[in-house]
Design a protein around this nucleic acid. Structure first.
Lengths: 185, 185
DNA sequence: ACCCTCATGTAACTTGTTACATGATTGA
DNA sequence: TCAATCATGTAACAAGTTACATGAGGGT
């Protein structure tokens, strides 16, 4: 029971009170690169967090707008968040990757099929990388440590480097396949 | 319903008949870098695969050894495997990373805590990278395409590049934290 | 008329983990 | 004697996805 979603939510609420809807929007922005959850997971988790006394909420009856529940972190929640932030945890197992599983079984497809798979993956990853680099332009200079911007900068940098490495790997594989089969492509 | 475990198992059985126990051993070896499952997930999946007609099995009554069920891929299973190998799927969402989530919330910890977290992560990753490089020594020359060794080589290379990028990122963050706080470390 | 954003929730299901359960053989 | 390896399974739970369900307001 890691309860990582719990701490992802507490971390966001520690910065400012938010509704479930706001939280799901946050997960679609910066955090999209390493953590996220759908609203169907967020609402029950907020309910549970309230039962545990980690958050409190007030209902705002919206005039000309839907009602909203604004959640605020409690002292209990803050204490647990700080404890979690300081934890020294084991390295997570390597994340699963369906494309690499396919490549592991490349002996069970033809060379043409392998070549096509590598090419298609390369095109998709190049696009993702381009989008990521646009975001990275926000930080020509690294922000000050101790600010939310610095956390943002760190994870954005990591996403960029991860995608760079993925592209480098794909190029390496394509080069080797082509060396052995110059007739392809 | 991706059923990725189904195809991971079919891919292994396509090479040779195996028992559930053998499959769980495979997941602890090369595949550990991008796919794996515990025996408690493998046995029920094999049962389901047999019901679907993707695999067949024969029971070997072990003399001086426990009984074993040896599973073999069927024509149906092979057909479905080949179809899966050729699929053009969307890019998976970025894998989740608990450490990066912590780093995203680095503004909610002290600079000392941030520095310690980065250092601990760096030590652990360096160890993992060293172990990975030992394995990589098997392939000083890339194997021939169309062999199981080539698939193995590709995913081992990717694991190495991924860890290199992670280490590079950690060094980048540590350098920036130290630049702003020369008194640390 | 139709789709998008705001806003909150539940139900059914898939995927994966931890713990329970059993039992033989081999090596220190 | 104790731990490890071989060998197979189930039960309970946690985590995450997809679909269902409702409803207001604004823009094209």
């Amino acid at each position: 029971m890691m309860r990582t979603l719990k701490f992802a939510i507490l971390g966001l609420l520690h910065r400012a009170p938010l509704t479930g809807y706001d939280i799901s929007k946050e997960f679609e922005k910066d955090l999209v690169n390493f953590w996220y959850a759908k609203h169907s997971q967020i609402y029950p988790e907020l309910k549970r967090l309230a039962e545990e006394g980690c958050v409190s909420f007030s209902v705002e009856n919206g005039v000309e707008k839907p009602d909203r529940k604004v959640y605020t972190i409690t002292e209990t929640g803050e204490r647990q968040l700080l404890e979690w932030l300081a934890r020294d945890e084991e390295l997570e197992p390597t994340p699963k990757d369906v494309f690499k599983l396919r490549m592991y079984f490349s002996d069970e497809m033809s060379e043409e099929e392998l070549w096509e798979q590598l090419n298609r993956q390369y095109q998709k990853r190049k696009l993702k990388y381009a989008r990521l680099q646009e975001f990275a332009r926000r930080y020509e200079e690294p922000p000050e440590t101790g600010t939310a911007a610095f956390g943002d900068y760190m994870v954005l940098t990591s996403a960029n480097m991860r995608e760079e490495a993925y592209l480098k790997w794909l190029r390496h594989c394509m080069k080797e396949v082509k060396r052995q089969h110059p007739e392809l492509g």
